[in-house]
Design a protein around this nucleic acid. Structure first.
Lengths: 200, 200
DNA sequence: CGTCCGCTTGACTCAGATCAAACTTGGTGG
DNA sequence: CCACCAAGTTTGATCTGAGTCAAGCGGACG
């Protein structure tokens, strides 16, 4: 679950943007659609997800206002994920892909920012691959929490539902809740409201 | 399992390289080491892998002669993977990180090539995350093969051992072999020497 | 020729998927 | 303010698929 590009002036000088507003759940694009534009989120938020053959959804990321979506598609023919507006809907600005590429050529600094962002995504995804390679639910949960907890306090202020976490770490929500209860009973973590604290 | 950067003139103009030769299994760097140089593989090949708490290894990529390794670390303080020479050993050229970044600023074309490469890695890793999110061994294997089989012939010329594939898709080798046998018995695939063909 | 390692199969166990149901929470509308 | 609905959370019972331990086969390589 990588954050989208936190660029201060994304797509500056990349031609005239076209705005579009989406209702909650409405799709900005679907897997397989041809890539024509790059998007900047003006308001609200978008979810990136991949759908499995059995109908389940795998969350791949989220882009809030001020961020960009699907930078990884810049050089692709078609999208590999679905992108839908999160609850509350979203407004995006679309920039023609060719314009964005031209703007990157013209401004090396922006290219460097994007480079930095994609490099961070690669590392984040590798972390997630390692996490998913763990065989037990408890190991996955502890790895997940260790990744996000504040190193000093060992606390993670939850910014999502456990159900979503279950999808992120490849478990059913039942298996997740049970493993959480086990970990809490064993004293490895404490849940209090929207806070999770690691112990020992 | 992403291929490393296929740049024609990687790190051109990035200062004076320092060569180093590694024996098979010898480490170029380890997880946690500070990032000081970027490497170009002159001869042989390197493996990128992450180690789990229980001692298991998760393969993250491979870089053969003519490719670069660990481009994703360009902006990191320390490595997040181990990098060891593959069987046969390897010879690499190391370029100071600051020189590489300076060269990228000077030559936008190279930056674009790296951008393209990282974008492809992100998509590949997302595919792997989706694959690992599948719950059954058979679904993972079919997804794995579908990703690599030639679209026209539906055949994958194996370039690695099944044992390695098992680590890539998060299964024990026993579970992989059994699932393969089931799929073959059910007529979903055929193994012949080093070729795997998908059917139906 | 012997050793190493990838491959393969068997038997057993157990963790997690599945199906089911109840409770909590938050938000909407009357 | 409260009734109601949707979604997240939690627990139970059952079953199956993958992990684990174990053993045997075969090819590659020194």
């Amino acid at each position: 679950m990588q954050p989208a590009a936190p660029m201060t002036a994304p797509y500056a000088g990349a031609g005239m943007p076209v705005q579009r507003t989406l209702a909650a759940g409405e799709a900005l694009f679907r897997s397989g659609d041809p890539v024509r534009q790059m998007f900047f989120v003006e308001r609200g938020a978008l979810r990136l997800q991949r759908n499995l053959a059995d109908g389940r959804l795998v969350p791949m990321g989220r882009a809030a206002a001020g961020e960009t979506v699907a930078e990884a598609a810049l050089f692709s023919d078609c999208y590999h994920c679905d992108c839908v507006a999160d609850i509350g809907g979203a407004t995006v600005s679309g920039f023609a892909r060719a314009d964005v590429i031209a703007a990157l050529h013209a401004a090396p600094g922006q290219g460097m920012a994007l480079l930095r962002h994609l490099a961070a995504q690669v590392q984040g995804l590798r972390g997630r691959v390692a996490l998913l390679s763990q065989h037990t639910a408890e190991a996955r949960i502890l790895a997940y929490l260790a990744q996000r907890a504040d190193p000093a306090t060992a606390v993670w202020p939850m910014d999502r539902t456990w159900k979503l976490v279950a999808d992120e770490i490849g478990l059913t929500h039942e298996a997740l809740y049970r493993a959480l209860a086990r970990l809490e009973r064993a004293g490895h973590l404490v849940r209090r409201r929207r806070l999770v604290a690691l112990c020992g």
